[in-house]
Design a protein around this nucleic acid. Sequence first.
DNA 1: AGTGCACCTTCCACTGAGTGGAAGTGACAG
DNA 2: CTGTCACTTCCACTCAGTGGAAGGTGCACT
Lengths: 274, 274
Amino acid sequence: MSGKPSRAAPPGGAEAAPVDDRGVAARLFAILDAFTAPTVAASLTLSAIAERAGLPLSTTHRMVAEWVAWGGLARQEDGRYTLGMRLWEIGVQTPTARTLRTIALPYLEDLYESTREHVHLAILDGGDALYLEKLSGHHAVNVISRVGGRLPLHSTGVGLVLLAYAPNDVIQSYLNDPLQKFLPQTMTSSDEIRARLSGIRAHGVALMSEEMTAGSSSVAAPIRDRTGQVVAAVSIVTRTDPATGARLDPAQEQAVRVAAHGISRALGYRRSAT
Amino acid sequence: MSGKPSRAAPPGGAEAAPVDDRGVAARLFAILDAFTAPTVAASLTLSAIAERAGLPLSTTHRMVAEWVAWGGLARQEDGRYTLGMRLWEIGVQTPTARTLRTIALPYLEDLYESTREHVHLAILDGGDALYLEKLSGHHAVNVISRVGGRLPLHSTGVGLVLLAYAPNDVIQSYLNDPLQKFLPQTMTSSDEIRARLSGIRAHGVALMSEEMTAGSSSVAAPIRDRTGQVVAAVSIVTRTDPATGARLDPAQEQAVRVAAHGISRALGYRRSAT
DNA sequence: AGTGCACCTTCCACTGAGTGGAAGTGACAG
DNA sequence: CTGTCACTTCCACTCAGTGGAAGGTGCACT
């Protein structure tokens, strides 16, 4: 007796069947996702992985071993697991990220050099601003952005730019969902944001002040590819000037524009008018 | 009739059984590896993936679909497949790469700014120099390094530094295998290299000239962590000065040293003597 | 508009690879 | 010594995954 009903309902069972209908692949991926969600963890124990992935311990054990054998996970001396170099190595080959980064980096460096402020490069991905690159000095001001990290569209400079030039249905559906208010100045009314977006489209720059992190402001501009489509956004994040308040140094705004144009040009964009 | 012997030998078979003893996981990974080996490809057709991974077309089809569902692969409009953003997003979380990069980047920027030359950051991984970061201006000199790429240890500045401070058995086994000669000046004799390695350990810098790419030289220095272990190497690659020949600008050498020390200090290293 | 070709998608009978509960090991604390 | 917690190994069972083959689809050349 003691049948092993595998993915079917438990033997004498009458309760809710906890059947796992994920295939092998989905389970393997769940193990990777365990390192990202619910919170990013640098290293995890086997049981923590099992719990986060929602898998039996023995299954997790076997699968983790496969990841380690391939190099996607690595085991530390203390027995805990981390993401492995192989994953990094393959990840950086991802064309969208690699191409954009390679082309943009020199311009981002120039921008950093001339302003000495945090420089960000982000793309639109699944309703978030996904940060592809971030340059900052030693004397880092507080910022919560992080390469590979995501931030909302309505409360960041790059996000607002990306949203402004996104297809209409994306804007629509983004503004339909309730928007989180991070600080008193965070704009959350869908009508106000719509107005702001047209302002951004008209001027080609987004100016943000104290809408995500206290004490910091940002200027962001769109990056276009050969086809004229906006594919990314650059920004600098500065400490909000207590004297001038929200207003930013016009020279900085200009520097961001120049960087964005330079990258667009390097991507093959030739502006037709204006 | 027409049995389907699955992973067993073919029906009437008497030939060599092409049994594939890889598990599901290994096959899934083989699909990713198809994008890296034998040559790096930005996008592949389904059949190309199948061939490179050594998998039947139908199996590849199913598995690729799983990767796409998760975001590890993406399908382009033309039907070809590329590595997906999810892979990039998870890959950049890899602790070794992320930590080192985050800490080192500001110093690399300084180094780039003060020298205006290609700046490299690499670690030792499986007998290769693995390039974690690379900064370079618009006016790029020819270099073959690439973020996420690998180059041999004996013919690059960073490589030689990493080898110099590697455990003895690593040096031993690396020098046992025959070393490729890329240019007339590439040093391939294991004795000469051994001598050179002690020179590097003594001076704390490696100087290379025309050993990997014609017309370029490099200076590299070791980066240490809290424990004093060398964990990475920085270098700059310059156009070989036709006048002075192999000799490099002492100011540049100094700049590389300064950057390496800065990063080591930021990693928690406190030099005890010297 | 027909033929050939290359590539992709779907189908389905078969079975061994993967499953997960349970028992075993090991390290550490009280 | 006993309990607890975290990891590892085992093994009988069975259904998820397999891959050959047949069916689409798109395109180039005639």
